[in-house]
């Protein structure tokens, strides 16, 4: 789990993790900014900007396998853990620290890593 404690930015509680079905993603609007949050089948959470740098595909609608996401529009792949593109020369995705709280809520900080 990412370290969420040492930061000035407030921690945002996005509510229960089961809003996101296992292996899928959903977009959350936070302070007017859209963030895609993903929940992998092995229980990890990832948060990134919500559109693909290639042609603005909606990343939360992509296919997720482990930490690799495939954009639904043109199949560009990214590793959500780092934001880095896989097999294409897009720029990396902005990622945000996100973790599961002890009560099962999604907690996120809006400071890009």
């Amino acid at each position: 789990m990412p370290e969420l404690t040492r930061s000035e930015t407030p921690l945002r509680n996005l509510g229960p993790v089961d809003q996101i079905p296992p292996g899928e993603g959903r977009v959350f609007a936070i302070d007017g900014r859209n963030v895609a949050v993903f929940r992998s089948r092995d229980g990890r959470l990832f948060a990134t900007e919500d559109t693909c740098p290639h042609r603005q595909g909606p990343l939360a609608d992509g296919l997720l396998g482990g930490s690799v996401l495939v954009c639904p529009l043109h199949g560009f792949k990214f590793d959500l853990a780092t934001g880095r593109p896989a097999g294409n020369d897009c720029r990396a995705l902005t990622t945000y620290p996100v973790a599961l709280s002890s009560r099962g809520d999604i907690e996120l900080r809006l400071d890009p890593r």
Binding site: N13, L14, A29, I30, D31, N34
Partner: peptide, 18 residues
Amino acid sequence: VLVRPRASGQGDGRDGRE
């Protein structure tokens, strides 16, 4: 899009988180 309308520093008081 799941809207979370505003930032808030208010927690629920139990664990210091909102």
